[in-house]
Design a protein around this nucleic acid. Structure first.
Lengths: 202, 202, 202, 202
DNA sequence: CGGTAATCGAGACGGTACGTCTAGTCTTAAA
DNA sequence: TTTAAGACTAGACGTACCGTCTCGATTACCG
């Protein structure tokens, strides 16, 4: 009847997990994703390489796990308006891209995900699905409020919010800041509702 | 007095350039960007590695040059409306992302650009600046037409158009198609002008 | 007054000793000395690695103990002649080298002994000293009989008998057999006594 | 018609061969065969690991090649007597075992040869066959002189000479010296011819 | 009978070498 | 000076093994 039975053998040492995660974050901050080597992580963490490969099948998973750790949903409260809700979402996205460790890792991680379908799928199920759920919630509430009269595609809205921040940061090579949050929210809200006539965006 | 002097020694063989470019494109299609090795390119092209490095300073530049080749400005004609112009632009962006070779190369290329500031700057000066110029033109014409009453930031609009397609393709892992062109153009145009009230997007 | 006191705690399980020894011998026969791993021994014996290292300080000692087990002195009876005694000794040596497990282990074991002075010394005190004692006895009896008129160095005679079999087996890569026993004994006896004039050996 | 044509590409750099060989010999002298690592050889030689593996398929071949280099036949002159010829041969064997690099490498090399049939065969064809040829010559000359009246097996004599030195050095753990040369030659010559009656050996 | 202590199988731990692979540079002879 | 071919240095990769340590469970003796 005791299903969660203790597995045989010496149990994993959680301090090793922490040390690995810490080393990954430190090293990404210092040498970037491309400069990160598994040997360096092991040395920095004071850990054998076997301990790393026992936990992570590849360098991608290692970094992914280092970034994902306890990043829970962020419920995004109902602000009472579509514009407010989108501002909240944009803020969360910009915030996460502002973590220097995350920012240094994302392009390389995205590239390597092509070689690791399992991790890619986990990325989809974790981050992407979660954020899309938030977008859906926002659009649903706007529909109930009457701000929207027709259903909008949450995937497109998600792509717009996320992609704009991504492009701003990695393709156009600019620092995302609070003013970007406001402008993205305004543009998207206007695009969905029609907004005020001639409302400027730039 | 003869400035475009013929350089000394054996002139470069332009068939070598073509063979390299062809091999790069073939190999990216077959094994992806991460699986591409310079030795493989040399072997496939029937060319020595020195011939490659004489032309391209690094693997990144090699791939970059392979993708860029004869991709000229595309003047983007004035369609007479902001929505039409944005549709044209969105179409160009989606088209370029639809080339399977380009699509297979972009994430890895973007990641490696972080390690190669020179190539990154060239990427900015070439593609990014060119597309931003097109966005500026579109917004300027809309202002002249009276569709816009206030100046909009071309960088933000560019980030929205480009980023939405990028996110759709590489973050949300979906195929971009003609319907995406229309929906991006509509959302952006509405966002800029305020659009019709309650105009749906999804 | 009770010196062989029972030690505290759970006593060692002698079936574990047997299982380890058996696994070592099986695995050496199957994969050779170089291919033998402690993990494989543990797995084959159905035993934890700690149980092995509790008994043996290193891989070398593990194998050494596996080969040595109950290999008692073999008193080598007085046959009444030097030639007969040497034949008996040569026979023992060839016999021990003919055990396929021993033969598969010896070269690697000898190499690793250089890294393990303790085990090397134990090897000297056990095998080498014992065999040298037998050689000394044989030479002593021959002296008493009058077959020898001057004392011979037992170390050199030992080196000749043991080394010839070793070289035959591991350097010249031949199977040692009964005829080798006779020829070694004849050559050595003749070398010690002067033998019959022109007595052939090959 | 020019068969030894220059192969394509950059030719091997003979200084690299020398540096590798030198590093192998230095390191064996310093840390022994077991302590020798390919990385250390590469570092000491100032050479990439690829340059080593391009030349040697394994660590064994690397060491073997390091020891073998220009070790030519040593014609062993006819001294006019079996005893003199055998002394000459014993001297060559003891000399080669006296090289500290060779002595440090032999047991490990011998062990690893079991895992590398190709190198083992090369060892047989090179050293073993050459020395056996010398033994054959010595026995043949003794037969012509009348010192031997019946043919003796060169393989057994070879095993005796080589094995005695080997056992003395590696099994009995003693330094071989000039007196060993004389005693081995005397014992073997006496064994073959019958020698003087009661001629002592020790 | 309950406590103490060494044992057991299982397997995680740090460390380290292996042999492979790649990037970017250099060196040939021939063109 | 270019070409194809391929050797060069440097260094990361993922695997494997050693000898140690840690876990819960077991098995004896001691009091």
């Amino acid at each position: 009847m005791e299903s969660p039975k203790q597995p045989l053998g010496r149990p994993r040492d959680s301090r090793v997990d922490d040390a690995i995660r810490g080393a990954v974050r430190e090293l990404i901050a210092e040498v970037g994703y491309a400069g990160l080597t598994v040997d360096a992580v092991a040395a920095r963490a004071g850990v054998g390489k076997a301990a790393i490969y026992r936990r992570h099948a590849s360098r991608v998973e290692l970094v992914f796990a280092g970034l994902v750790h306890d990043r829970e949903p962020h419920p995004l409260p109902d602000t009472g308006s579509l514009h407010g809700d989108l501002t909240g979402l944009a803020n969360v996205i910009v915030k996460s891209f502002s973590d220097p460790v995350v920012a240094a890792a994302i392009p390389g991680l995205l590239a390597d995900l092509k070689q690791h379908p399992d991790t890619a799928e986990r990325f989809q199920r974790t981050f992407i699905a979660m954020e899309r759920g938030q977008v859906s919630g926002i659009l649903q509430r706007a529909l109930v409020r009457g701000e929207l009269t027709v259903e909008a595609d949450p995937v497109l809205v998600h792509a717009t919010m996320l992609g704009t921040v991504f492009a701003w940061t990695f393709l156009l090579d600019r620092q995302p800041g609070p003013e970007l949050v406001e402008r993205i929210a305004a543009l998207t809200a206007a695009g969905l509702t029609g907004g005020g006539p001639g409302r400027p965006v730039g």
